[in-house]
Design a protein around this nucleic acid. Structure first.
Lengths: 208, 208, 208, 208
DNA sequence: AATGAATGAGGTTTCATTCAT
DNA sequence: CATGAATGAAACCTCATTCAT
């Protein structure tokens, strides 16, 4: 960001531009956003855009920052049922995830779908971090046992798995799968994995 | 494809163009691919490119087709250890997956990373189909029992999970995770899920 | 034309190419003809096309030549009613003109519409010449009087007038005018003009 | 037009572009006009061109609009001699027509020659409309009689006839005809036609 | 003779970014 | 500060023509 908005008007403009970026992404898709579209949507001139942001990239980055914060706040408020089973809680979170991806007219969906072309991994990182905290808390509360050592690995894997499956499912237009099936399947997988013994090579009753 | 290559020279050209597309994707990334780059890399003129392909999209599609076939052939040859444990086989496949993603100077990595911008889902679809076949075969051989009903859901979820985790891991340059950890974690998760009772809430009694 | 077709096969090819040119003009419009279209339509290769013609221009020129001849032969056969009134004969010719413009799926219409971009004026010239002959003959037969001196001027003016009006009328899609009205109007005009005193400044009963 | 010019500078630019279009048509002919030529001629970049016009077509259309207006204003100022004979006035108009076609280095000539490839019929329509008004006025003033019913047909025919004859004559480089002859001939024809009884077969009694 | 593969100049259009007003 | 006019590199695609086979 070129200039720190110190005045009220400036902060409004910065916000308007970020919001306009979001709207433009929703309307035209990430690939089709142009600085002109954003400026138009924000009701300002391109010149002003460049006075506050170094370019398109920076704007998207700013948007991602904001969204990351939004998500983080949402996640900490996630109604985790105290006495609920792990399965129940996991399923709630996954369903929450779907609702987030559908929210804002698909803004998150579009962003996650294009995660690779985004200037930062902020959203992903935030998600991961939030879930990490969430999980740590959960296990601490409910198991009061020695913390799972490789929790960060599990969270990494779970977050990525759930996220990509949701995106792939939504993006897919075949009727071969229902959301109910996907939610249920992922819940099974995640719960199983979270419950799995830490020692990956320990007692394996599961081998054929 | 616009024209069917009737002469030997033209078949070579078609191949050269597809190969050049691959190389350009490797060199510059999918987004930076242009018809000129491809033509240059193939050592031919743009005009020639357009004699055989309707444009960039079609070239990428052709490349994907070819790669999908390549992968399919590789997968059927996957050394599935007959007497090996499910865990062992799953781990082998995941490791094989990593090696594929690293092969061809990251071509597959780049393509899977950008799956969303690709003209076809052929590679993903092929992967899913191949794994579906593979899994069906495996369970048939090793369990000779009633087939898993929701196998297609599980395969969908597993393929997506494993794929995206690999891509994310490779694309990530933090040293917080080792490939060994990710492989191991995913193996745990996948094996657990494959063994999970079909009735999502029942007990795990699937072992032979 | 590059080569004079001495062999039967060659003459067939030349004919096929000219005919293909006509068909392509009909199908795509004069502006959209390409050598490839023509060669395709003729069922030969571009290479062959260039063996017999110096390029697109020459092909169109050849087509025009052929059409000019066709028209000329048609015109000399025009059923001029011996005892018919001038008005009747003129109207017949105009109606004949309309039918020609509509013939061959609008080939003539397309050509006359684009007369300005054509390599030769052959068709126009032929038309003019044919009508000149026709008129001369008519006046000789029916009036046996001193020939109209400025006949070539009148024919020039009449041919152009009638031709362009027909083209404009056909190209127009408003329902403001009927073909019957245009034919009738042009007949009036032409007959009046042909009958007009030769001395343009002579007895003018017509002034207001 | 894409953008409405809000600043003074941009209005100048729009004008410069339209003027450059005219100049390019004069210099290279309608077919050879390219966006780059126009931009070069206007002394601006292609980008600027596209900020105000959707492309070549729109520019030509804008030019035609402007010319149509110019012509319309010229025509209403046409010095119609009050007491003059119809013949005299017709001849004046035709001569005026020739001078217009020769004006602006042949711009009109080029445009009318290519009427078929132009994006709009505006010029032709304007011409027709203007002459329609002119004629109606003339007959009203001078004959104060029942208006000629099929006036629109006559005007259509006359405008087309005169226009095309002028274009053809100018485009022709044979010395077989003099402009004087063509003017005179067309005048005869037009006057005769305008005076012709409405009943196409009756006697000519229209004179006052 | 016939083929059709190969060429590449030339046309259209877009868009991130700058800078005079 | 804010504006939006101006830029021009860079992408896409076509088609007349040549030439090796």
């Amino acid at each position: 960001m070129r200039k720190k908005p110190k005045q009220k008007r400036s902060r409004q403009m910065v916000d308007a531009l970020i919001e306009a970026t979001a709207q433009t992404i929703i309307d035209k898709g990430l690939d089709a956003v142009t600085t002109h579209h954003i400026a138009d949507a924000a009701g300002v001139s391109v010149g002003s855009l460049y006075q506050y942001f170094d370019g398109k990239e920076m704007l998207i980055e700013a948007l991602m920052d904001k969204l990351a914060n939004d998500i983080a706040s949402l996640l900490v408020q996630l109604p985790m049922i105290e006495g609920g089973s792990l399965r129940h809680n996991v399923q709630s979170i996954i369903e929450f995830g779907f609702s987030v991806l559908h929210s804002r007219d698909g803004l998150f969906l579009e962003l996650v779908s294009n995660w690779n072309n985004l200037p930062t991994d902020k959203v992903m990182d935030t998600l991961q971090q939030s879930f990490m905290d969430l999980s740590r808390l959960y296990f601490l509360k409910n198991y009061q046992q020695n913390p799972i050592e490789d929790l960060h690995v599990r969270v990494f894997i779970i977050v990525n798995s759930v996220l990509f499956n949701m995106v792939r499912f939504i993006g897919q237009n075949t009727a071969l799968l229902t959301q109910q099936q996907v939610v249920s399947g992922m819940t099974d997988m995640v719960v199983g994995y979270l419950n799995a013994d830490q020692d990956p090579h320990g007692a394996q009753v599961l081998t054929p």
